[in-house]
């Protein structure tokens, strides 16, 4: 069983972090970050060509993380792979002992560094989840049997702040849970009130899946303003004001993240936090420590290489 699944199953407040693979073939930094983050987080996400910028592949990066003692969450997008490649990658990941898979539709290629690329989008994230679950149960998408089914722990993302409404986003989260998501990572939360409204809607649907709230420590007021400009992001005026007035913005950013995590812990239905430090991973151990989330729970290591036993 994956460590992340056990932490969640045990009802412990989970902490995950994000590692963006490099835009080159040297993975030393990935291993370094895995060593930095493994002691203070339960799992580490490897982004899949995030914002459609070409990077070292998430599956290879996940292997590096695993070898460095981490617990990878493989991000897998539908943007660059059709159903054949997706199933193949899921089998490959499981064969390497990687169970946590975050099933994403993926950022549109228009935002990346190859906007001329043909987007695949054969499946969407919900269909990918359903396919991953089916594969875990021993069926390919076409219904054919898988002799040694992959052991997978599929997760998904949800944006509490996207349209049309918080209720609709909650319903979509529930849909992802029905499709096979065993955990949800949310978009970055700064707007606590908006997030609470979303979680209230999630609770109304019976809390169908553990929710890890997204947290990003802002490095500067400028970084926050930049995020504000991205569709689907919502930055609170208060956070912006605090960052603008701070004499030491980095310290203030860490304080803000710690306060947010403490507040998010109090929101019913929140099962953990997912810290996306985007290029500032060094801050994560301190944030986790100061949020009162250390030490991380001990989980019995179980052998997980290969298919289901």
């Amino acid at each position: 069983m994956s460590r992340l699944s056990e932490v969640l199953a045990a009802g412990r407040f989970a902490v995950t972090a994000e590692i963006g693979p490099p835009k080159h073939a040297d993975a030393r930094k990935v291993r370094e970050l895995a060593r930095l983050l493994a002691p203070c987080t339960d799992a580490q996400n490897l982004t899949d060509n995030q914002t459609a910028v070409v990077r070292l592949c998430s599956l290879a990066a996940a292997v590096h993380v695993r070898e460095a003692g981490g617990e990878p969450v493989l991000q897998l997008t539908c943007r660059d792979r059709n159903r054949i490649a997706l199933q193949s990658d899921l089998l490959g990941a499981a064969s390497l002992g990687i169970e946590n898979v975050l099933c994403l539709t993926g950022d549109h290629q228009k935002f990346g560094n190859h906007p001329q690329a043909k987007g695949v989008f054969d499946l969407d994230s919900v269909q990918l989840l359903a396919m991953a679950r089916g594969m875990g149960e021993g069926r390919f998408l076409n219904g054919e049997e898988i002799k040694a089914p992959p052991r997978l722990f599929p997760g998904a993302a949800e944006n509490p702040f996207a349209g049309p409404s918080a209720a609709f986003r909650a319903a979509r989260l529930a849909k992802k849970a029905r499709a096979g998501a065993r955990f949800i990572q949310t978009q970055v939360v700064y707007d606590l009130a908006g997030f609470q409204a979303f979680m209230a809607a999630v609770r109304q649907l019976g809390n169908p899946v553990p929710v890890l709230a997204g947290v990003t420590p802002p490095k500067s007021a400028r970084a926050l303003k930049y995020m504000q400009g991205i569709p689907g992001f919502r930055v609170s005026e208060e956070a912006l004001r605090r960052m603008e007035g701070a004499s030491d913005p980095k310290e203030e950013g860490i304080r803000l993240a710690v306060e947010l995590i403490r507040q998010l812990r109090e929101v019913p239905g929140v099962a953990g936090v997912h810290i996306m430090a985007i290029g500032w991973e060094e801050a994560v151990p301190r944030i986790v420590e100061e949020s009162g989330l250390m030490p991380r729970p001990e989980i019995q290591e179980t052998d997980g290489i290969g298919g289901a036993a």
Partner: peptide, 14 residues
Amino acid sequence: AKNLWNGPCGGSAD
């Protein structure tokens, strides 16, 4: 833009 069948995606705003 992403040919979704289970939308809208997280990028839908206003």
